[in-house]
């Protein structure tokens, strides 16, 4: 464990050093994927992300409340024990399922917490891409008061 952490830290400092002297390019800034956010069905978003074959994985942890007192603010936490490049959060019954996506570098932990809106009770998908492979976790979140009004 301790050994592992030292490895990580050494890697981090070497990475930082290389970046600072320009040996490696900084992570490419991702442009906003307007198309993915505009898709209206879950399947279409999976397809645009290239995640259609995603399977559930025990490496992935998805934490969200069983019941959201208000759909305008639903806290979600996604983490993975493998090194994630990308995490996406999808709400099946929202008018546009893709709520948010996050891109990580080698220095970023595979972890993100955010707050999303849900129009109604729905299944929520957490998708994690690591080593080019998508995995997912699903959770139904009940909404007592819809967040459509914003």
């Amino acid at each position: 464990m301790d050994h592992q952490r030292r490895e990580v830290m050494r890697f981090a400092s070497v990475f930082g050093l290389m970046a600072s002297v320009g040996l490696i390019a900084p992570a490419k800034a991702e442009a906003w994927s307007r198309a993915a956010f505009a898709e209206k069905s879950l399947d279409a978003v999976f397809r645009v992300l290239g995640a259609s074959g995603a399977e559930t994985s025990s490496a992935l942890t998805f934490t969200a409340p069983e019941i959201a007192e208000n759909g305008a603010v639903v806290p979600v936490v996604v983490s993975s024990s493998s090194s994630a490049e990308q995490i996406a959060i999808l709400v099946e019954k929202n008018p546009n399922p893709l709520a948010a996506q996050f891109f990580f570098t080698a220095r970023t932990e595979s972890f993100v917490a955010a707050r999303i809106k849900m129009a109604e009770t729905s299944r929520v998908y957490a998708l994690v891409k690591a080593g080019g492979i998508w995995t997912m976790a699903v959770k139904e979140i009940k909404v007592t008061l819809g967040g459509c009004g914003g």
């Binding site: 934490t63 969200a64 409340p65 069983e66 019941i67 959201a68 007192e69 603010v73 806290p75 936490v77 707050r115 109604e120 009770t121 009940k142 909404v143 007592t144 008061l145 819809g146």
Partner: peptide, 21 residues
């Protein structure tokens, strides 16, 4: 206008929600 889903609350789950926020 609220569109309530439940007749009764599950206080524990609501507590989890509030704690996360």
């Amino acid at each position: 206008s609220a569109g309530w889903v439940f007749a009764q609350s599950s206080t524990e789950d609501i507590t989890q929600y509030r704690d996360m926020l």
